[in-house]
Structure formats: structure tokens, C-alpha cells
Design a protein around this nucleic acid. Structure first.
Lengths: 233, 233
DNA sequence: CATAATAAGCGTATCATGAACATTTATTAT
DNA sequence: ATAATAAATGTTCATGATACGCTTATTATG
């Protein structure tokens, strides 16, 4: 059988396989994206998504975990595969397909020193420069997916700190959708989901009155997921 | 620069890259899937999705087109990438990642002889056997995607012949969602979209009275897509 | 030729959900 | 004491989803 395998596979070309991470963060009311200066050709010196080749004995998703851990210091970052990018000419160096992943991180969680030491930078989403290879396309596709997902799962919660206020949550959704939302309707929708636990603490950084902090109720959230809900806003 | 490229890439393992097609069809009220008997190890003889390795100078989506053309004889089949499957152990032969695509074909369109000559077979979706490698997982993921997509685009139309009746369309959606739909509400919804052209012909194969045949209005459909509609049923 | 049988086709009432919109409240700074 | 600021809350209206029963066109049959 081993012989037959070799015969069958041997005329086929092998390729490089990479995975690139579209890392979304949220900070001071702005949606941000983590990028770094590419250190290798092609496109050396250009801003680029953070990625790596997939090792021959490594699962693709493990490779993404590894990259995310390396650059942010966090080991359980929320990420999910977007799709594979497989045009022949996408990388002018060698034939290389890339599997894009999009990740959401709580911007207060990450290890700032570590990020800086890799020459990485949180770019405001709107000001994003031209990125290496087909990375701008990946980012656009990633944002579309983030928007679509945010409608069916309160996925945005992943981008906020452990404790957060309703106005902060609203600002996040406004950043994701790039439009203003009505605060009364937003509150109503969020509360109707029963996935927030109101705490007795207030956050007074943005108003005199202060806004109540909330925690995420993971148990109710999981129940909700199973029953197939809708977070259209 | 060439030298540097080689230095950089040379320590990385290359892999086989394949693409596998989840081909949905619809026939006599049943959702079906096109599979064939695998002719190579590993899993030789098992039913399998139809796939192929991606050539070194071939785009991934071109490879999928090629496969679909080869097996069905149709050259503009609707298909879309699902995602990449990249577990190390997914193929016990060699390290090989696969990019799954899901395709929808009008079952009356395809070239029956050609399909048979490849040893392919339209399996009823519910009766699907164990497939090779991780193909059952791909199929499940593909169905989920099909269902999700069918809510936002009348994607199901792709699975019907040029001319079809409303009851046929309803049966298709019932097959996709595996539940009965109310015919009055279904009609109302479909008609409100203004994407069907009612013809003067009737199809009498399933009733004495006969049901009016309809065509798909591509122009209105494209307008609708742009305005971002919703086909939730 | 009359009648039975069958699926196609249509309309209405009710309910749930999203959208629009203004005022009061808690707190701090002056 | 007052002004300033953002947080918090409730109601109405429109739209779309769901539930539900009756009529119609046609063929087969006795």
C-alpha cells in the first residue's frame, strides 16, 4: 500500500501553506486591527497581517493558536477560520496558499510589551494602510464575516473587558457596523437576551453619573445559542 | 532577492493541497448529494466526495471548476468555498489539506452518462453512508452553510430547472430545512420578492389541476441582492 | 354525463418584533 | 445652589411572521 500511495501522490505538486490572522480589537470607541511590519520578501517592510507557515506536523488551527499566543501572549484567544486564499499569483515568491483566520481580542488583555517586541501595531480600522499580498482583501472579507456573525451571536462580547458598561457595548457595535444605534432600542434588545449580569459597580470614566458595569452570563448565553437566536440590531 | 526567498522558504514543509466538492442536487422532492467510489488509497472503495489535488499552477477555485466540469459536464456550476480542512491526521496517507467547496446543480442539467462513467452516484441526503476521510464532516458543515445562505439569498433557485412550479420550490426548501412549510405563507413570501415570472404553461405531473410554471427573474433578483434583503422562511 | 378526488391557489386575523422618538435621573464641577 | 453631562427608561406605530379554512381547476370514475 505504501508503494501505491507514493505512486499516486508523487506526480502532484506540493505547496506552501500559511495561515494569517485578522486580529480585531476594540479600544477607546474604535475598532482596531493588529498588523506588523513584514520582515521577509516578498513585500518586506509593508504592513501585513500576522501569519506563519503551517508546519508539516501541525494542524492549521494549531498554527493559528501558536501565532496568536506568540504575538499577544494570550493562549485562549477567540478565533475562527475565515477561508482559504488560493490564487496562484497571490504570493509572488512561491506558490503558497493561505488560510485566513479572524480573531477577536480584549484589548486590555494583551501583552503590550510582547506585541511591541514583534513590531506589531494596533491600526485604527478606518486608517488601515495597504497591506502585503492579498491581506487587504482578507481584512475586508473578515469584517464582512464579523458583521454577519455579530448578528447571530453576541460575538462582540469577546472584544470587551470582563466588566463593561452597556454604552461601551453599544459603542463596540457602532464601530463594527459603522453607524449610530438608538440607545433605547439597543438596551431593550440586549436586555431581552438575558445574557448580562448587572453588577453593583459603576464605571465613571465617561460620565458624572456613571454607568453600571456588567458581566457576561456564559451559561445563559450557551442556552441561547442552542435555541438559535437572533441578535439583529 | 531570489536567493533570500529560497533561504526563507526552504526550511518549511510543503504539503499536498486538494479541493473536495460537496455537490447538492434536488430531485423528486429529495435533497441529494453526488458522491463516487474512491479509487485510490487511503480509503479506496469507500464513497467519497468528488475532489482532486490542486495543481501547482492552478488557482484553488479553478481546480474546483475543473472537477465540476469533468464530472457533471456543466461548466458554470454555482459553487462557493466552504472552508479549509487542515488537521494533520485527516488523511492518513500524506499530509494533505483540503479546501471544501459546496456546489448546487440543477439535477436535470447534468450529463448522466458522464456522471455514471466516473462511477458517481446521487445519494439521498438522509441515507448518506460513511464517507472517506473527513468528508462526512464536510458535508454536515456544507448543509449548515446551505441553510444559512438560503435564508439570505434565494440560493435554492439554483437547484431547480429553468422552469419550475411554486410547489416544487417549496418542496426544495422543505428538503433543505427538513421541515414542512405552510404553502400560503410560502407563496406570500416568494411573491413578495418579485423574482419570479409566471408563465402561461402548467405542469400537470403532480396534480390534475396543474401548477403554473415560473421562471427566475435574474434582473430583479440582482436588484434585490444589492438592497440587502432577507429570505427567512 | 355527473360526481368524486386531488392538489393548486388565495385572503384575513393575530401576534411578535423592529423603528422612531423625549424625558427624567444621578452625579460632579462650578 | 445650579449647571452640565451622560445614563437610564417606556410608548406608539409599522411591518412582517404565523396560523388557519375555503374555493377552484382539472382528471378519473361509475
Amino acid at each position: 500500500m505504501a508503494k501505491q500511495l507514493i505512486d499516486y501522490y508523487s506526480h502532484i505538486g506540493k505547496m506552501y501553506v500559511a495561515t494569517d490572522c485578522i486580529i480585531f480589537g476594540f479600544d477607546s470607541g474604535e475598532l482596531k486591527l493588529l498588523v506588523f511590519k513584514r520582515r521577509v520578501e516578498p513585500n518586506k517592510g509593508l504592513w501585513s497581517l500576522i501569519g506563519s507557515f503551517v508546519e508539516i506536523d501541525e494542524d492549521v488551527d494549531k498554527a493559528a493558536s501558536r501565532i496568536l499566543k506568540e504575538i499577544t501572549g494570550i493562549s485562549n484567544v477567540f478565533f475562527e477560520q475565515l477561508m482559504a486564499y488560493g490564487k496562484v499569483e497571490r504570493d509572488p515568491g512561491y506558490r503558497c496558499i493561505s488560510i485566513a483566520q479572524y480573531a477577536l481580542i480584549r484589548i486590555d488583555d494583551y501583552d503590550e510589551k510582547l506585541v511591541e517586541s514583534h513590531g506589531a501595531f494596533w491600526y485604527k480600522f478606518e486608517d488601515l494602510p495597504t497591506l502585503a499580498l492579498d491581506h487587504n482583501l482578507m481584512v475586508l472579507d473578515g469584517l464582512k464575516r464579523l458583521r454577519r456573525r455579530a448578528k447571530y451571536q453576541p460575538i462582540g462580547f469577546e472584544l470587551l473587558p470582563e466588566k463593561f458598561t452597556i454604552p461601551q457595548l453599544q459603542a463596540l457595535y457602532e464601530a463594527i457596523y459603522q453607524r449610530k444605534l438608538d440607545s433605547r432600542n439597543f438596551r431593550k434588545k440586549v436586555n431581552s437576551l438575558n445574557v448580562l449580569i448587572k453588577l453593583d459597580e459603576k464605571d465613571k470614566t465617561s460620565s458624572k453619573r456613571g454607568a453600571y458595569l456588567h458581566k457576561f452570563n456564559h451559561e445563559n448565553y450557551n442556552k441561547l445559542l442552542l435555541s438559535g437566536f437572533n441578535f439583529e440590531i
